[in-house]
């Protein structure tokens, strides 16, 4: 079953086409990486799919619900970890997690239990009572992702989850994300090639607002006619320019 069906999705900002007639199906419980350079249209795509930004054209179905006509149903099924850490700075780690569950309608007792589960699963116990603003960048990002996971979404959007993190923190996050595979559908945007290669089941390459190619890493290499993924990415991304 397809978790996401994108049909001719477009977003214009004035004359600029940020996303241009994007069509794509993503199977349930897949980790799909949208790979592209800065300005390729990845974040705009995520914003449209998460009902944050209204498309200029086209539509998409998330678990069968339209992102245009059925936004409340879509919002109840998804969660998003934005590009920058999205935490309440004056709340503790535990309070942030409970808050994240609460705004999805969970009662306080349920939220407290879910927060404890998340603290255990993501090894957050040492920072559970610390205010979010006092945490390091790596811990804040981990908390931000935990806040997206706590509602057990059917579709999880991770927008550049490891940007700005050091190598060790990045590897730890990859490990966390890999553990989520097959439990939910994950759409991850990144401009790190190694990130897409390391954790994604399928990869979509975006450039100039368009989806240039989509498939497994091996099929993308084959399509570009090279064994080097970086070279394959460059060839595919620059296809239109040539």
């Amino acid at each position: 079953m397809d978790a996401i069906e994108i049909k001719e999705l477009s977003k214009n900002f004035g004359d600029k086409k940020a996303v241009d007639s994007l069509s794509l199906n993503i199977q349930q419980d897949t980790l799909f990486a949208l790979l592209g350079v800065n300005g390729a249209g990845k974040t705009t795509t995520i914003k449209m799919l998460s009902c944050l930004s209204r498309p200029s054209g086209g539509d998409a179905l998330v678990m069968g619900h339209s992102i245009i006509h059925d936004t409340q149903a879509v919002k109840a099924l998804i969660n998003v970890s934005p590009q920058e850490t999205a935490i309440a700075p004056m709340l503790s780690t535990r309070e942030n997690l409970e808050f994240s569950a609460g705004i999805y309608g969970y009662k306080s007792a349920e939220s407290a239990k879910m927060a404890q589960d998340m603290i255990d699963q993501l090894n957050l116990s040492e920072i559970a009572s610390k205010r979010a603003r006092t945490l390091s960048g790596g811990w804040q990002r981990r908390l931000s992702i935990a806040m997206s996971l706590i509602t057990e979404p059917e579709v999880l959007f991770l927008d550049e989850p490891t940007i700005g993190l050091d190598v060790i923190a990045r590897r730890e996050l990859w490990h966390i994300i890999e553990n989520l595979k097959k439990k939910m559908t994950i759409i991850l945007t990144t401009h790190y090639l190694e990130e897409a290669l390391a954790i994604a089941d399928r990869i979509g390459i975006m450039a100039h607002g368009r989806l240039m190619a989509e498939g497994t890493a091996d099929s993308l290499r084959a399509k570009a006619g090279t064994d080097d993924f970086e070279e394959a990415f460059i060839r595919i991304a620059e296809e239109e320019v040539k």
């Binding site: 998804i78 969660n79 934005p82 920058e84 999205a86 705004i103």
Partner: peptide, 17 residues
């Protein structure tokens, strides 16, 4: 000005909330 607002807007919270 923070990214928290993106989290809030993608949640099922309504305008009156």
């Amino acid at each position: 000005s923070s990214s928290l607002v993106l989290r809030l807007f993608t949640s099922p919270m309504t305008g009156s909330d």
